[in-house]
Structures are given as C-alpha cells and as structure tokens.
Write a protein that binds this DNA or RNA. Structure first.
Lengths: 182, 182
DNA sequence: ACAACCATGTAAGTAGTTACATGATTTA
DNA sequence: TAAATCATGTAACTACTTACATGGTTGT
C-alpha cells in the first residue's frame, strides 16, 4: 500500500489542498499509482492523525479548503519507507486471463476487445511522449532528481510499448486460421 | 475483476477441487492473476450459485472434498466475457512511487531495496524460462491454443525483463554521485 | 489414540470504488 | 436569489488479505 507515501512525496514537492493533490495525481504520480479524490481525502486525514502532515484552512480559498504540508515526522517516515524491502508488484492483468481463456474455449470475439485496448495503450504512450518532450527534451539538467523523474516516465513509456507489442502479437495469432481448423 | 473467469478457464481445461485449483493457479494462471485459496473457495461457491459450475463430492477423496466442473451456462458466460471491452490494467507499482520519492527527498537507502527486487525479478524470469523450455521448446505444435499459451508466458518473461532493466537503470542513477552534491 | 496432513471454511480487517451529500463562494 | 462550481466529506459496497477454525483421513 503506497498511497500514504505517494501523498507524502507529492507534499514534499509542494504543499497543497486535497483537490489540488487529486489533480496533480491525475497528471503525474497518478499514472503510476491511481487514487480517487475520496481516497486522497481519507488518507490525508489519516496522515494528519499520525502527525506526518499538518493542515491549516486557506483564508482566501473557497469553502472549507485546507492546505496540507509535510512535517518532520512525515519526512522521517518517507526515508524509513525508502529503506524498507519492497514486495514484488503482483502482476495482475485481465488480458493474460483472456488470452488463456481464448486458448481454452477456442474461436471467440476477443479480437475487437484487444484492438480497442491497443488503441488505449497507444493513446497513453502518446501522452507520456508529450510529457517527455515537454519536461525532458533538453539535456542541460543532469541532476539525480531530474534523471530519476525521467526514469519513472520512461518506465511508463516502455510498459505501454510492451503492451502494444504483446497485444498486436495476440491479434496476429487470433487472426491466423488455426491449423486444426483447416 | 477477472477471478471468476480465470476459474472458469481453469475448469474448462480440466475439472478439479478447490485445493487442486489453488495449486494449479500457483503454477500457471496465478502468475498472471494471483488468488489465495480462500478467494478461490468463495468464488467457486458464487460460480455455483450463478449456475456456471456444478460440483459433486469426491467419494474416494479425503474429507469434504468436492470436484467442480464447468456447465454450459459457464461456457456461454466465458464467451460473452471474451467479447466484452477490456478496461486498461491500472498500472500500480510501488517502485515508481519510491523512485519519485527518492527524487523528492534526496539521498536515501533505496539502493538495497532495489537490488533485492532485481534479484526477485531475476528468479521469476528464470522460472518462466524453465516453463518455456519445458512446454514450448519444440516447434511441432503450431495450433492456436499452443501459440496463445506461449504468448501469455512470453508476456510474463518480457515484463520481468523490463523490470530488471528499469531497476538496474535506477541503481545506476542512485549510485552515481549527484552533480549538485559535488 | 494421536500426530500430521488434507480440504474446506469463517471472521475480521484493509484497500479501493461508486454514488451521493453537504457547505461555501462565485457568477449571472 | 438561483445556478454553477469549488471543496470536502459520508455511506455502502466489492475485492482482497491474514489469521484462525473445523472436520476428516492417513500413518504410527
């Protein structure tokens, strides 16, 4: 469960309100660890209970808007977490199950669903590439921070490329007549 | 949520009891959609309620052992599901969050955790390669079923390769002194 | 008889999703 | 003052995890 630490990371970069964090998530970290605004509000409350973040009402903001900022305890916790051993991300993908199912049941209507998914991955790939062009085109910044952020984006790019490759190979198999069907 | 359909797939290949299915999952489909035995027992009960599978006690088996088999309704459901549009697997990986966190907080103890994870991915890759050698070394079988199953295994192999690459690149960045620290 | 193990299940809790509710501030 | 929208939150639900309980069979 990485959401609390993802929020701490977002807050260490810059303080913000729940909705601001939700929007930032949608644009960057959320591509690699999705969270809805409800999850974020709940988690921010927990982080505050734990003393990892502190909040104050934003005077010129609308309604009950509160701004959250990370505390020393939160910074310490983030460092502790970074040194902790990682558990391997359990790979869980519907496409794999569907391909096995297609192998088991024989001819089916899977091709259209896969083609649609190729399109989705291509859209995401294009989005990531536009991020890369915008933020990492110049080679002037060689700081560790910059290179790590670029690597995370690269990870997303290569994931999408891999899915596109695999889905296209699946399409090729599905569209070739089965030797036993001839 | 693919577990019910993953179970239907396993049952279409061969009927079996809850524990047998759990063991089969651990050896094949479970690498791509993990499930514990508790999940499997509960889901089998639901599948039976829905009329997609039927079970009977195994007379010569131990204790309360029951064998489950897929019904026509289950077969129909599996075909219906295959034609359904797929939602894109939400990418959720701790490593990405950690790298972003490391970028934000500066020097930390992340390298050891990543190195450990490289080892895990290499172990899994070796396992998948041994599966491939055992089941897909000969080119004699060119049926669609065989090629689809091979593709699923290939997907696992290339995923592991990608993670190993990315984790090693992360290590390289973390072990190079930050230009701003000189 | 009793230890070990096979097979199934219950209970309690966490994480995440979906739909809806509420309060406050702009804007028309 | 009503509508739109910003901002936060509640409630109910599903999926999954972890720990434990139960009942039966086999071997000693």
């Amino acid at each position: 469960m990485s959401l609390p630490h993802a929020l701490l990371t977002a807050l260490i970069e810059r303080p913000g309100s729940g909705l601001e964090l939700a929007e930032r998530f949608d644009r960057s970290l959320g591509h690699f660890w999705h969270a809805t605004h409800q999850q974020i509000y709940r988690e921010l409350a927990r982080l505050e209970d734990a003393g990892w973040v502190a909040s104050e009402p934003v005077p010129c903001g609308r309604g009950r808007k509160r701004s959250y900022a990370i505390c020393d305890l939160g910074r310490t916790e983030l460092l502790r977490w970074l040194a902790e051993p990682t558990q391997p991300a359990p790979l869980r993908d519907e496409l794999m199950v569907r391909l096995r199912a297609a192998a088991a049941v024989g001819p089916s209507d899977l091709a259209a669903a896969i083609a649609q998914r190729v399109a989705m991955h291509e859209a995401k790939l294009a989005l990531y590439r536009s991020f890369e062009h915008k933020d990492f085109a110049s080679c002037t910044d060689t700081s560790r921070e910059h290179r790590l952020k670029h690597l995370v984006l690269q990870a997303g790019i290569r994931q999408e490329q891999l899915w596109i490759e695999l889905a296209n190979e699946a399409l090729a198999i599905l569209q070739t007549p089965d030797v036993r069907a001839d």
